[in-house]
Each structure stands twice: as structure tokens, then as C-alpha cells.
Simulated scan of single mutants.
Amino acid sequence: MKQYIQLTNEEIKRSFKLYVIVVLVMAAIELVSVVAQVMYHERKVENFMELNRVSVAEALKQIDTLGYSEASSFFSYMTLIGMAIVVIYAIQIWYRDWLGETKYIYRLLMLPGSRASIFFSKLTTVFLIIVSFIGIQWCVMQLGFYLFDWLIQPEYQNQIDLSPVQNVMSEFYTTNLIDMGIILAISLFIVSFIFLLILIERSFRKGKAVVKIGLEIFIAILIAYITVLFLDETRILLETEELILTIGISLLYFMYIIWKSLRLLQQKVTV
């Protein structure tokens, strides 16, 4: 446990500066996009009024008012970019140890005790980054809403669209603890699967590694397909029973991913 905590702390310190820079840049872009959308909308209304010699109310009938979901539309793209960055980081957190000038992976693999602490320290680091990213993004969205409400003139604002989170974003940034738990569980599952594929690539020669990676992806798709097909075609289970079955299959496969990854790290990956 002590080794796991030390390695997790080390991984966090190695990534902290870059993570802070990325988060600040993304937050700045998102907030600036809200300001830009408000300014663009007001300029659009004013230009329409000047060209057509009409009042604000008449101009807004043609152009429409601006809601926060429209002003924060750029947030969706930044969220997708954030997801892509997390996936890239999940890959980079392993390969930087092999490809770096110091070959840090040699020090890790030669540490006394179980190598499981190496795996779980990296998994914990990525998971903490996912949790913190969601939390920070939520705070930025709330801040963006207050910024929007402060900047825009009342008559220009869509009074119906008062929620800081709308449409697709509401599915991802939910306050429901069960939904949030599902999102984090899926994120952890995906990261674990990426780790497994990386460890397979590091454990075998290129040709054999490609075959085994392809096999693992095929197995994952097959299990998902059979599960969905069974639930759709049979209709013999209640909704609660279907949920329990899905969770059970997911947990079993997740346990397989962890077991296979640890086995590769312990027995196949060598100095």
C-alpha cells in the first residue's frame, strides 16, 4: 500500500503542471467564447436595427433572443477535446516511461514487491484526472452562466433558457449521483481497456501483439453485441433484472481486464 501511494503521488506530480495548463487554457477558451457569443449577438441586433430602422423588440422578433445553451455551445466541443486528451494521456502515461530519455520504466519494474502497484497507481492517476476534469468543467459552466447573465442585456436574453446545462451536456454533467457513478464507471472501464491493449503491445512482438490486440477488441465487441441482442430479442427479464445482468457482465469483464493486465505486467513485461 505504501508503494502504491508513493507511485500515485509521483505520477500526479509528473502530470500536475501540464494538467493545470490544459485546464486553464480550456476554461479560458470556454469563458471567452461566452463573452464573444454575447457580443456577437448584440452587434447583430444593433446592425439589424440600424439597417431596418426598427426597435429592439422588432429586431429580436427577427433575430431571436440568446439563451445560455446557445452562448455556451462551444463547451460541447471543449468537452470532446477534454475526453480526447484523457484518452491520449491514458496512453502517454505508459509510453513516456518507455520512450523517455531516462527509461523510467526500468526503475519501476525493478522495484521490490508486486508490480500491481505500478498498474493501479497509473489507473488511479487517470481516474482522478477524469473526476477533477468533470468537476472543474461543471464549475466553469456555472461561472459561464453567471458571466452570461451579467453581460447580456435583459431584453436580449432568452428567459426560458435559464439552465446552465442543456441538451447533450445535461447527460454528461448531471447532479444525479447514480448517473455520475455510471459515467465514472464507464470512464474507468475504458481506461482499463486501453491499459490492457498497451500492456499487450509491450509484451509481445509486433505481429503477435497486433493479433492479440485485435482479438481483445473482437471479444469486447462480441460480448457487448451478444448482451444487447439477448436483452432486445428475449424480453423475458424485467427492467431491473436486465440492469442487474448488464452490471454483472460488465463487472466480470472488468475483472478479466484487470486480471489479464496484472498477469501481463507480472509475467510478460520485462526489463
Rank of each mutant, 00 (worst) to 15 (best):
Q3E: 15
Q6T: 13
L7Y: 01
L7M: 12
T8V: 09
E11G: 00
I12K: 05
I12R: 02
I12P: 01
R14Q: 12
R14H: 12
K17T: 06
V25M: 11
A27K: 10
I29H: 04
E30D: 14
V35A: 05
Q37W: 02
V38Q: 08
R43H: 11
K44A: 04
E46N: 11
E46Q: 12
F48Q: 08
M49W: 12
S55T: 15
E58S: 15
A59Y: 10
K61Q: 14
Q62W: 02
S69Y: 09
F74T: 15
F74M: 14
F75Q: 12
Y77A: 08
M78W: 08
L80Y: 07
I81M: 04
M83L: 14
Y89Q: 11
A90M: 09
A90G: 02
I91A: 06
Y95P: 01
K103C: 03
I105F: 08
L108I: 01
S114A: 14
S114E: 12
F119W: 09
S121I: 14
I129L: 03
I130H: 04
V131S: 06
V131F: 09
S132R: 06
F133T: 13
I134S: 07
V140H: 05
L143Y: 07
F145V: 00
F145D: 04
F148M: 05
Q153T: 09
S163C: 01
Q166I: 05
N167D: 14
E171T: 10
D179H: 09
I183V: 14
L184M: 15
F189S: 10
L196C: 08
I200V: 15
S203L: 10
K206N: 13
K206Y: 13
K212P: 00
I213R: 13
I213S: 11
G214F: 06
I217V: 11
A220D: 10
L222Q: 06
I223A: 01
I226Q: 06
F230S: 12
L231G: 03
I236S: 12
L237T: 11
E239S: 15
E242N: 15
I244Y: 12
L264K: 07
Q267K: 11
Q267P: 01
V269D: 13
